[in-house]
Amino acid sequence: MNIKQFMAQDHRDCDLLFAKAENAAANDDWTAASHAFTEFVHAMERHLGVEEQELFPAFEEETGILTGPTEMMRMEHEQMRTLFAEMKEAMEQQNSDDYLGAAETLLIMMQQHNMKEEQILYNMMDQRLPDEVNDWQKKFKGWNKK
């Protein structure tokens, strides 16, 4: 599986976890919401982590582009992390309006980010990098053990 296929599928998987947490929060089931949210953030951090630590550096090294798309993507990752923190805070306070508001903002942020990656960046990576650069898929699968 190449980078685009693998990572695009992971985007879809993360979306499902996002929906699970949002559904629970919308029903004021905070125990289930908290579990699902932890699962979601974990999956997201694994995705973002593999990109930031393995794929982006490999791409930057190969192309010599340090201030291009990867820099933009890193900035958007930070914006997403700010929203994770906001969602977490709302969840701890069991404030569903704040949770759902931050979650909706994250959803749009995340989807437009994924789209840029899937339509542009991953294609560029698949053209320039070998499929198994830095053993990234192995590291992705072993992420839980870190």
Binding site: L83, E86, D98, L100, G101, A102, E104
Partner: peptide, 12 residues
């Protein structure tokens, strides 16, 4: 500084 989320900008 916390930037207000979407539901604070146009309430549901």
């Amino acid at each position: 500084v916390k930037v207000p989320h979407m539901r604070k900008i146009i309430p549901e």
